[in-house]
Design a protein around this nucleic acid. Structure first.
Lengths: 184, 184
DNA sequence: GTCTATATTCCGATAGAC
DNA sequence: GTCTATCGGAATATAGAC
């Protein structure tokens, strides 16, 4: 992995563990083993690094969407949930929730990137929910996008809330979502 | 309003607008019209102020719970939702989501306070959901606490997410929650 | 590309006068 | 209680050697 990739990866971890405003170039320096000043060669401003982190999520999700094109709606749904489960085991929250919490403090380039990523997630979830309904494996009323909003908000919040109330609640929410979706 | 109360109020606003780590004593100073150093007389450490802010939410909610004791489950539910609606109009997120996002960076006194507040919210929502179900005005399956988790996560996240996707989505989520709860 | 060195700014916090 | 003054530290960022 290149230095640039290592920096992005550790920044992503730190942003989702501690928040964008709480992490510093010094933190990255300690993890990657490079001096603070050297980070500026790859990312002149902190917001350039923040933007790159979100962009990595965009590329990763586009890749996932492609990889899952032939798979069933249930498999897509399980993949979607597993992203949050993996975050949870590492005490990380999702990038959308982390950046949205700090939205009033960040630069315009990061804002537009997080909008792009959020819409990508929303579109994908909407797609596989509607696909599942057409194939009679998912059951829900109303617009697909509205249902996607309900499920995404459940997941975005439970990774945050279960830091406070305990991991058991994460399991409860994922089970309820699935149960609700599969119930005629 | 006393100076102490003014400080707490503006700190609450700042924490929910910008996040705990992004707000400073200097911000408070500008809003309240008191020098930075004077804030330390009321709150020696920043975490003392953070703790006081959360404690104010606890007192406020206990007061609300008492005031709504004689009212219907639907009225309690509407009150619950209105708290988030008011936050939304001021571009604030809820205190639980804000603090949970920064949980790995804050002091133990704030952590235990946010746990106390979160459980208070959870218990109250659980109570009026079950009350509503017994009275045949709310309809849902499973444990009351589980349903409370689903609704609270919807609300906690949509105040954050709709900063990115737009306020229209806030309306959609609140409508869907209500529709779902009232549907036999 | 990475380093040392440094500039600049802002932060939380304290001492002591009033 | 609020002020002025100041401390020590940490933050982002830049300049220039290697």
């Amino acid at each position: 992995m290149t230095t640039r990739e290592q920096i992005i990866q550790s920044a992503d971890k730190l942003i989702r563990e501690k928040g964008y405003n709480a992490f510093s170039f010094s933190d990255i320096s300690n993890v990657v083993g490079i001096k603070k000043a050297s980070i500026h060669y790859h990312f002149p401003q902190k917001s350039d690094l923040g933007t790159a982190v979100i962009n990595e999520h965009i590329l990763g999700l586009k890749n996932t969407i492609n990889k899952y094109k032939g798979k069933s709606p249930v498999e897509k749904f399980e993949k979607f949930i597993s992203v949050y489960s993996e975050a949870k085991t590492e005490n990380k929250i999702c990038i959308v929730g982390s950046v949205a919490s700090d939205l009033n403090t960040i630069e315009e380039n990061m804002k537009s990137k997080i909008k792009e990523f959020t819409n990508l997630v929303l579109d994908w979830v909407t797609f596989f929910l509607e696909e599942g309904r057409e194939r009679n494996v998912f059951y829900f009323g109303g617009e697909g996008r509205d249902k996607a909003l309900m499920i995404i908000t459940n997941m975005l919040a439970i990774v945050q809330l279960s830091r406070v109330t305990g991991e058991k609640d994460f399991k409860i929410v994922t089970s309820k979502i699935k149960e609700d979706l599969l119930k005629k």
